[in-house]
Every structure is written in structure tokens, then in C-alpha cells.
Computed example of a mutant assay.
Amino acid sequence: MSVLPYTFVLLGAILWGTTGTAQTFLPDSAHPFIISAGRSTVGGFSLLIIMILLKKIKFKTWPWKKTLYAAICISLFQLLFFSSVKLTGVAIASVVAIGSAPVFSGLIEWVFLKLRPSRIWGISTAFALIGCIFLFMNKGEITINPVGVMYSLVAGFGFAMFTISSKSLLQKEETIPVVAMTFSVSSILLLPFWFLYDVSWLLNAGNVSIIFYLGLATTSVAYVLYGRGLHKIPSSSALTLSLAEPTTAALLGVFIVGEVLSMTSWIGIILLLGSIVVLTVGSRSNNKVIVEI
């Protein structure tokens, strides 16, 4: 099994890890629901227009039910994740949401799809979860909001469901059309929020540019990379590699935002990176652990 699909997923996760840092440049009046709606709109429709021009989407035969399900899952993930970021900060929101997703995915695959998680996945996920604990044992630096943590946990479940449903969708359609359609439908589902919350902050060109970055880089490009990799590897493995997101978020928090991490947090980063190495190298050297859905 080629290491390329794992690399695609990893690069996508790194791009996701820049989301929190980008948000720090938005004003406090930027509501999480509007950020979610804007991100889906820019990311989805920018790809959709290109795919329509290239005649890559056949609307009559498109798997609408699977797309709607994936769009609902990613919409809920975004709403809950960005709300969690607002309540408990980028670090905790990222690690709880993305850290819990591979666990949920492995359990879902095991219970409902009768696919027992591989030993490599188990070892890698254990490394990652222990790393997450160390990463955010930052005394006095981060305030843990129970409601925010709950939002992140549900967001993690939503992201796991999105990954599994997307994998099923990718078996029928190409990656870029799938991402384009999923996020375009998501933007339609999130449309009502544009009329419920203040959007005056979008009159600022700088704020609009950040939304475009979130839509193009952390949505269009990131999810296309993630989708291409996901098509070739198990959902649980893809989600474990997604733990590169909180690692990236933590590093950017230190070097860009100016957050201070303790020694335990740095140990956590090393463990998270170790989990990625275990999963990538282990899966490449042992083809038996690769089980397609």
C-alpha cells in the first residue's frame, strides 16, 4: 500500500490546524455559525462552479441522499466545533473533537460495519490520546469549559460520521465533485443563520479575506486532499492521522499567537507526532491492516 494516501490526509489535517489561528484575527462579533456558513459557502461553491464548467457533475444521477447525510454531519461538526472554540479555546476544542473522532470511528466501524480496528490503529490511537492529555496539561494557560468540551465531543462524533459517509460516497464519485457538492449542500443548510446573526463585520475587507482563506485553504484544498487519501485507507486510520490538526494548532499557537506551552505539552506534541509515524509506517509495512469499507 502506497504511503501517498496517508500523506494526503496528513496535509489536509495540517491545513485544518491553521483554522484556529486564522480565527484569532476575526473580531469578537464574528459568530461561530456565520463563520461556519461562510466557510462552507466559499469552499463549496468555488469548487462547484469549476466542476460544473468542467462537466464533472451529473445532477440527475448524483447520490443525493448520501450527499445530504454527509452535508448534515459536516454542518453539525462545524457549528459545534466553532462554538466550542468560542467557549473553551482552540486548543481544547481541537484536541477533544479531533482526538475523539478516530475512537468514535473505530467503534462505529466495529459495531455497525463489523470491521474490527487493526492493531496498528489501536497502538497509534493510544499514542495519540495520551499525547492529547499531555499536550493540554498547561497549568493556568487554558480554561476548560464543560459545555465547550461537550460540544467538542459531539463534534468529534459528527466528524467521524462525516468521514464514514464520505468514504461511502467516494466509492461512487470522484473526490473533488464530492467535496464541492457536500459543502455546497452544507452552505444551503446553514443559509438561515445569515439572517439571524450580525454580519456587519464582513464589511471589513480583512475579515472577508480570512473567511476566504477558511473556505479555500482549510475547506476546498484540505478536504480534497483528505478525500483523496480517505478513498484508499480505512476511516479510522484517516481520523487518527487527523490528529495532526491539534498538533499544528498548538505549534501555531506558540509561534504565531504567542501562547506558552509547558514541558508536558511539548511531550504531548512528540507523542502525537509519534502516533502519526506509527500509523503511516506501520500501515505501509503491513498491508494486512488496510481494510476497505
Score class of each variant (00 low, 15 high):
residue 127 F to T: 02
residue 283 S to L: 03
residue 208 V to A: 12
residue 155 A to V: 09
residue 167 K to P: 03
residue 8 F to R: 02
residue 158 G to C: 15
residue 215 G to C: 02
residue 228 R to Y: 14
residue 210 I to G: 06
residue 255 F to N: 06
residue 185 V to Y: 01
residue 226 Y to T: 12
residue 263 M to F: 14
residue 261 L to H: 13
residue 78 Q to L: 04
residue 162 F to T: 00
residue 221 V to N: 04
residue 97 A to D: 01
residue 138 N to D: 14
residue 219 T to C: 13
residue 16 W to T: 05
residue 129 L to H: 04
residue 253 G to L: 13
residue 79 L to F: 09
residue 234 P to E: 06
residue 269 I to G: 08
residue 267 I to G: 01
residue 286 N to Q: 11
residue 251 L to K: 08
residue 60 K to H: 09
residue 262 S to D: 14
residue 219 T to S: 14
residue 259 E to A: 13
residue 287 N to L: 07
residue 21 T to I: 10
residue 70 A to N: 07
residue 94 S to A: 15
residue 270 I to Y: 07
residue 99 G to L: 08
residue 33 F to E: 06
residue 35 I to G: 08
residue 3 V to P: 00
residue 267 I to H: 00
residue 91 A to I: 02
residue 166 S to E: 08
residue 238 A to S: 15
residue 103 V to F: 15
residue 142 I to H: 07
residue 30 A to S: 13
residue 9 V to C: 13
residue 187 S to H: 10
residue 121 W to K: 12
residue 44 G to C: 00
residue 186 S to E: 02
residue 259 E to L: 10
residue 74 I to G: 04
residue 207 N to D: 05
residue 286 N to L: 08
residue 270 I to Q: 03
residue 245 E to H: 11
residue 278 V to H: 05
residue 147 V to N: 09
residue 261 L to G: 05
residue 222 A to E: 10
residue 221 V to H: 03
residue 34 I to L: 15
residue 127 F to C: 10
residue 56 K to F: 01
residue 91 A to M: 11
residue 207 N to V: 03
residue 278 V to Y: 08
residue 132 C to K: 02
residue 270 I to K: 07
residue 264 T to M: 11
residue 149 V to L: 12
residue 157 F to M: 15
residue 14 I to F: 11
residue 205 A to F: 12
residue 73 C to H: 06
residue 92 I to L: 15
residue 172 K to T: 14
residue 245 E to Y: 11
residue 74 I to Q: 08
residue 96 V to H: 06
residue 83 S to Y: 07
residue 52 I to Q: 11
residue 117 P to I: 09
residue 131 G to N: 07
residue 275 S to D: 06
residue 20 G to T: 09
residue 87 L to D: 07
residue 200 S to K: 14
residue 23 Q to F: 04
residue 213 Y to A: 12
residue 194 W to P: 10
residue 123 I to Q: 06
residue 17 G to E: 02
residue 87 L to C: 03
residue 199 V to T: 15
residue 41 T to N: 03
residue 168 S to L: 12
residue 148 G to N: 10
residue 282 G to A: 07
residue 188 I to R: 02
residue 98 I to E: 01
residue 59 F to A: 07
residue 72 I to G: 06
